[in-house]
Design a protein around this nucleic acid. Structure first.
Lengths: 242, 242
DNA sequence: CGGGGGTTTGAGTCCGTTCAAAATACGTGG
DNA sequence: CCACGTATTTTGAACGGACTCAAACCCCCG
């Protein structure tokens, strides 16, 4: 297969993503240090970057591609906790809590990831307190998102939650086609959408059907066309207005 | 009413809870600083310590009592995000994310809380890097708990989730009665249990009924007797075994 | 061209909700 | 200490959304 990602030998100094990461406050010496510590790897779709239950050996920095954080329970139920794209960091929760990873990280697309080993992270945290603050902010945001998701899941019907997912994906995967329609290229299978919304694939299929019947969006495999964004926005309200 | 809480003028040096908080690594000079910064307050049941949507002015440290963190959505639905008791810190999520509080904090019992203002927290963070690490650990644990709760909520029936809640409350509110039975004194109303489990009060009532009929526990207002802990533990499994 | 996984559809069931009313607990003032 | 009004909890009946089980379908790939 050909290489959509630039060759290895990535350099933190020239990394386009750095400003969006926790490392954005690092300068000169510290940045040089990070650059030496990190180890780069590429993954194909479907490959697992780290496994739920494995001890945390360090943290990962996504340079390119899309990754799914998927959590499994004892009986094989799974939930897609979150998705990570360029500039995001993975595995920090386990690192700070000091235990094992609580979820799998699975590449959805071709992906390039930098790994920074535990000791290295610790060293950088010591050298630059801003790194710690950046992580605190990041985790705080995640926590709020997780709690919001819980509220949503228990009070909104599947249809509203699916609409919410589409709007989330829009920010990262949408383009505008020749007719001026909004189109979204879904980065995941129906199964994954079910996991993320907290339901079954059958229900996702039926809900998609219902949304199409109402003319809010048209689904064609992973290709979604949204003629009127407002109509999709309206789906977010719970079924009570007048 | 009489005074279950000792008089004001609390001192961080003698605070029994300090070892359990993020401040456990503070020594001498820093601790003195914290002691001067903090402002103590007492609250009666039902009083709000801070409001969802209000800007974060600092963080709170619970010295005695039980507090409910309750989140409301636009339509008046509420969910009990978590409960906080002695030694826990509140409001740190908003502090680090830099925005407003994402939930109400409401005293469930008589409560004494110390407030540390934003600037003060910042100063302590700078003086002692361990404080930041302690917060990172704390938030990481919260994040995992929140994500677990989400998985639970979408895959387990109400009955299992209620059992889970009872087991959580056991750690903090259970005693053993004269016959050797485990008894739990619930710190909240049915309404709150519904919120925490993510359902309606009616369903909680019915589920309690079902649990009683099966002899797993006996409810009498807020007084719960559990004759056999194992039976309660069994409720956690999903309804599939043989 | 023949699998094989993922997706869609269908029918039936169950769990939890809604709406409404009865019962109980609680706090207040007489 | 009791009576009363209010709020919470419990119960009932009917409805509905999502699940389960199972079969048909589709698309991709070898």
């Amino acid at each position: 297969m050909n290489i959509p990602l630039s060759p290895a030998g990535i350099n933190c100094f020239t990394c386009q993503m750095r400003d969006r990461t926790e490392w954005c406050s690092l300068k000169d010496e510290d940045l040089r240090h990070l650059n030496e510590l990190k180890v780069c790897n590429t993954y194909d779709p479907g490959q697992i970057i780290f496994y739920q239950g494995n001890p945390c050996l360090g943290i990962y920095c996504v340079e390119a591609g899309t990754i799914a954080i998927r959590k499994l329970d004892e009986r094989g139920n799974s939930a897609l906790v979150r998705m990570a794209t360029e500039g995001q960091t993975l595995g920090y929760r386990a690192f700070f809590a000091g235990g094992s990873y609580a979820a799998n990280a699975e590449a959805l697309t071709k992906t390039r990831v930098c790994f920074i080993d535990k000791e290295g992270v610790r060293a950088l945290l010591e050298r630059n307190p801003n790194v710690g603050l950046a992580f605190l902010k990041h985790i705080s945001d995640d926590l709020e998102a997780a709690e919001d998701a819980r509220l949503q899941a228990s009070h909104l019907p599947v249809r509203a939650r699916l609409a919410h997912l589409l709007l989330t994906l829009k920010d990262r995967f949408a383009t505008v086609d020749d007719q001026g329609n909004l189109t979204i290229e879904l980065p995941m299978a129906r199964r994954d959408m079910a996991d993320i919304v907290g339901t079954r694939p059958e229900t996702i299929a039926r809900t998609i059907r219902a949304i199409e019947d109402d003319g809010v969006a048209t689904f064609n495999g992973r290709h979604v066309v949204v003629p009127d964004l407002d109509a999709l926005l309206d789906e977010l309200e719970a079924p009570d207005e007048l």
